[in-house]
Structures are given as C-alpha cells and as structure tokens.
Amino acid sequence: MVFLTAVNLIRSRGPDEWWRKRKIFKLAAYFYGRRRNCYSLAIRSVHRALVYATKSRQERKSDLAELWKQRITAGAAQHGIEYWQFMDGLHKNNIEINKKNLADLAAWEPASFESLAKISKDFVEKNRNK
C-alpha cells in the first residue's frame, strides 16, 4: 500500500541531516568543550547565543548612550558645569551635536569642547535669576 499524501513528509525534515547540522556547528565553532562538537548540546547553546545576540542589539544602544553621558559629564565637570546645564545650554543656543560626537570632542578636541562649555556657562549665567 502506498500513501501519496503529505503524511509521509512529516518525518523527513528539511535538507540532508549532515548539512542541517553543519549550519549549527558553524555557529557553535567558538564554544568551549563538548558544546562545540555534540549536536544535542550545540543546538541548545546556539539557540541561547542567538537570543543573547538579539537582546544585546538593543542593549548596546543604551550602554553606549550611558557611556557617552558619563564622558560628557566628565568633560563638562572639568569646566565647572553640570551635565544637564551643559546640554540645556547647547540646546537653547540651537547647537545640535549628538552625544556621541560631544563625547568624542571631550576626549579628542578639548579646545572645541571648552568653547561649547563656555557657551553653556554664559547661558547659565545670563538666565541665573530668571
């Protein structure tokens, strides 16, 4: 008796087994121990690694924003001004430089950063009693 329906296809999964596992082993190539070579262990670790990769894509953005904020705070403190005052002064003077570039300026272009800090400090002084 020959079944010609799709029922037969249930157990035949995808491409050839060797190639299917090879895709997973390539992703597991840098793992430690048996997780690199045993398929049943490798597949678990690869799934977990892909979840981490997906989450980290979002977390990287906030981590970097936090680092830039820390660096700008340090740069602004060198000129005696706080982070929020510095950023507010730039914003009110229509200077639209993002945090990444401000952090770069603080480290690599201290003279430019000092000029920006001076603009913010003048703005704070001018609006002190308003």
């Binding site: 660096r71 705070t73 340090a74 740069g75 060198q78 201290p110 950063f113």
Partner: peptide, 8 residues
Amino acid sequence: GLHKPIYH
C-alpha cells in the same frame, strides 16, 4: 577615573 572623558 569617572572624572576623565576617556573613561570606559
């Protein structure tokens, strides 16, 4: 070293 702009 949080007071330095090169902090990481």
